[in-house]
Simulated scan of single mutants.
Amino acid sequence: MDELISANLNWGLICLTYTGAGILGNSSLFCLYNFSLLTMQVLRPIDLILSQLVLANNLVLFSKGIPQTMAAFGLKSFLDNIGCKFVFYLHRVARGVSLSTTCLLSGFQAIKLCPSISQGMELRFRFPKYIGFCCFLCWIFPLLLNIFIVMNVTHPRNSKNMSTEKTYRYCYSPIPETLLFSLHAVIFSFTDAMCLGLMVWTSGSMVFVLHKHKRRLQHIHSRRLSSKLSHEARATCTILILVSMFISFYCISSVLSFWITQTVNPSQWLLNFSILVSSGFPTFSSFVFLFSDIRVSRFCFACWTRKTNAPATVSGL
């Protein structure tokens, strides 16, 4: 009994650290990307996409990581029927928004970088005007497609037949009929596969263009061209890392989810590892942005300069 309590405590601390780090990183980025609105500066089109991505990732951690952390510490009936429906619906919607926004971010950078995708300069200049509408669509489809979650998920106290329900530690979901489950699986599989396919295509195009530019720079020694391409290359490499990270976590999470659904009594380590993987992209992507965004380094440098110059100013007085 003591070993079980110790294991639950250790797992709860891991979930708390894991989720807390991701929420802190995404919240910092959200404030950074919206700082231009507060200071009345010109908002870059990509900042709107990045703000939506970190917001969706934060919602994933709030709706998945926090309840799982509370359940790991031994709390079981902390959500009522409405709470279970809301948490699961929010998680599914946030996951869908994160997927579509990552796809949008990859497509936006590909249009900026690849002339063959933008089909001339007109699309490259017109596309930023429609980013707000594209971000709106990223929310509409997940909100509509996941409505059935509200009807299925229920609180354990409202559960009538545990043998025909799937447990999620703090809530239950009735196992759907074969036809209904197949229809939902086809819809979600199609939308996910389409977004993942677009990510792979745009990422491959960006890699090809970067390789082509690198070979061209070996023959053309232009500082202006080199500086412009190096800036685009840094942004593109960051997005390629994010896309690769998202696809990796998504594939591993899908395999684990299928494994769990096909197992009668899945082991505790399998459930715990699946939870960590499903929250992997929202947590680690925030640190990719923090280490790659030049505004973060400028802000840290400004704070460090102000801190080091403060004693000298005081001594001068």
Rank of each mutant, 00 (worst) to 15 (best):
W11L: 13
G12Y: 08
C31F: 09
Y33V: 10
L37Q: 14
L37T: 13
L38C: 06
L38T: 09
M40G: 12
V42T: 10
R44F: 10
R44G: 13
I49K: 00
N57R: 05
N57S: 12
L61I: 11
F62R: 01
K64P: 05
P67A: 04
M70A: 13
F73R: 01
F78L: 04
G83S: 10
F86C: 07
V87C: 13
F88P: 05
F88E: 06
L90D: 08
H91D: 12
V93Q: 06
R95T: 14
V97N: 05
T101S: 02
L105G: 00
S106D: 01
F108R: 01
F108G: 00
Q119Y: 06
E122F: 11
R124A: 06
K129H: 08
F133R: 11
C134M: 06
C138P: 04
F141C: 11
L145E: 12
L145P: 10
N146A: 02
I147K: 15
N152K: 15
T154H: 10
H155D: 11
N161Y: 07
S163P: 02
T164M: 14
E165A: 05
K166G: 05
F188S: 03
S189Y: 13
G197A: 04
T202L: 02
K212S: 10
Q218H: 15
H219P: 03
H231M: 06
H231K: 09
E232L: 10
I239N: 01
L240K: 01
I241V: 12
I241T: 10
S244M: 01
S244L: 08
F246T: 00
W259C: 07
P266Q: 05
P266F: 02
L270S: 14
L270C: 08
L271F: 08
S274P: 00
L276A: 13
F281I: 04
T283E: 03
V288P: 00
V296E: 03
F301R: 14
C303S: 09
V314A: 15
V314D: 15
